[in-house]
């Protein structure tokens, strides 16, 4: 089963969960997927989630009253984990362009697709899970 995961939300749970909750979910599921040669997870970043391709630093720690966050999210690391797990990661060019991010360097392993190229991407997947 080949499942294309689509993420268009960004910074939705990042502070409270100390990670991007869908990137975390995918990493957990990948441990099952890796056990056979049939299944594959792919990730498409679109909408606000294209910002995740540009993350370089750990998230800023939150301070509320005298409570100080000690383990803020590291989205950069989450994306690296996905790539090193051989999960194809795609990002939509127009969504980068809309946000003025199209000229920024992308980390190795992220594939840029334009909106028309989403057609074959959607066609080749067995299921499409939009989060």
């Amino acid at each position: 089963m080949k499942v294309l995961q689509i993420l268009d939300q960004a910074f939705r749970t990042v502070v409270e969960e100390q990670d991007e909750t869908i990137l975390w979910l995918i990493q957990c599921m990948q441990k099952k997927v890796e056990l056979n040669d049939i299944d594959q997870i792919q990730l498409l970043l679109t909408g606000q989630a294209v910002y995740y391709t540009q993350q370089k630093k750990q998230q800023p720690p939150l301070k509320i009253g005298d409570w100080l966050q000690t383990q803020p999210a590291n989205i950069n690391k989450d994306i690296d984990n996905l790539i090193s797990s051989h999960i194809p990661v795609y990002v939509v060019y127009e969504d980068l362009w809309d946000r003025g991010l199209e000229m920024e360097a992308l980390r190795e392993g992220i594939q840029v697709v334009n909106r028309e190229q989403l057609v074959p991407l959607f066609e080749q997947a067995d299921q499409i899970w939009h989060w």
């Binding site: 089963m1 979910l25 957990c28 599921m29 099952k32 997927v33």
Partner: peptide, 11 residues
Amino acid sequence: GGPADLWRYAS
């Protein structure tokens, strides 16, 4: 359960 159960369910 956990995320592995989602993948199992889907499979």
